[in-house]
Design a protein around this nucleic acid. Sequence first.
DNA 1: CTAGTACTTGTACGGCGTATAGTTGAGGGT
DNA 2: ACCCTCAACTATACGCCGTACAAGTACTAG
Lengths: 230, 230
Amino acid sequence: MSPPDPANPPADPQRPRLSKVAVVGRAITLADAEGLDALTIRRLAQELGVTPMALYWHFRNKDELLNGLADQFWSEIDTDVDEAVLWSGQLRALLESLVQVLRAHSSASQLLVAGEKQSPAALEAIEVTLEVLRRGGFDPQHASAVARSALWTGLMLAMSEPGYGPSLSEADRAEHQRRSRIQLAMLPPDRYPCLVEAAEPMTDCNDPDFHYRFGIDLFIRGVQAMADTN
Amino acid sequence: MSPPDPANPPADPQRPRLSKVAVVGRAITLADAEGLDALTIRRLAQELGVTPMALYWHFRNKDELLNGLADQFWSEIDTDVDEAVLWSGQLRALLESLVQVLRAHSSASQLLVAGEKQSPAALEAIEVTLEVLRRGGFDPQHASAVARSALWTGLMLAMSEPGYGPSLSEADRAEHQRRSRIQLAMLPPDRYPCLVEAAEPMTDCNDPDFHYRFGIDLFIRGVQAMADTN
DNA sequence: CTAGTACTTGTACGGCGTATAGTTGAGGGT
DNA sequence: ACCCTCAACTATACGCCGTACAAGTACTAG
């Protein structure tokens, strides 16, 4: 209705030019803060003060953008291995670094479970892991299987942390846990004795470190056992 | 343009009435065949010869439908434990049953990683697992942690099977693997010696059973080690 | 025959990813 | 001074998605 005003360019010339890294950075900030679902092309563009289609100059499509995020996450993993410790300790350190990255970026695990693992940074991390395992005495086949397991163990630890859910605030998360716990505790104790009994530890996140420590220990022990028997 | 023809009901009276189970069944068939992405309300309705909105009589929203699928998957797990074997064997059997269900429904793992675990069938499965572990000597806290790990180990095994990808045909899957393998094998061998060396086992799915057997062994060994040192 | 309840349909809204085509402004050759 | 090129955007539109809302029909009980 109002005149379509052909004065086209309300583009703010103050705004610095976009770039792949800038876009990825903003995307990570957004995803960390509001969850992967909030990371839409339109929303991200708005966040950057730009038209949605502007992003398509820098990325072929949304998948490519997402791969950019994944690569960034991969690159945050510390792949410097301490030559002074045993292979099992090196493996543990790698896994701990992975977990740390996943915990720092609440949507990273979601992204990495689905995404391709062919990004340069991913290859680097996997290569280092394989090297550690090969030096530990695993043949290529078993090293591959263990490396895969290590990656997925990290992902699963992040996603199975009680109260995990992308984009929840600290308070929402606690509330959600409380609700779950109550629901478990209220079950008929004759039908679900163990579940009722374990209502607290099943939903608790008071000490999330226990969750991660236990999971990593469990994995490392398993790997050691597999190494011993062949 | 054409008269809006108020003769409303082209509804085929032959078609049997809808029901929750019927809808869920069709949904599973669709998701198994074409992947979770293909499972849209509109598509499912079309599949059932019905208007999209018809489904909203039976389900409050899509999430409730998805929970229906999840519950069905949970219920397919065999929770009959063989009292004659050790707790570790019982745990293994439960995990194997889970894996079998996940392998039978290619989109089940995607669904279960995200979904709530409060469905009746899920509670049943978790309760049984906890019972096994409690009888095995774990205290509630550790039993909870192990049970969680068991579930997520199954999920991660299904999703980390080389060539995993919802809705891919057998041929596409093989093709995809071949491509990945070549891409790994073509990497510079001086920079990625282990990756190149392990190109085959990293991407291979000739014997998917090895993948699952190894993963389950690794997990059970870990749990046994944790039990021994308490 | 009638009233209700259990289903189902039609229409519409806002949001998504993105194909296609048009616009702009900075830099360089002449 | 001019024009051309081309990277970096904007405008518009399409076809999907989930689903709110309201109206319609079919079956069943009284």
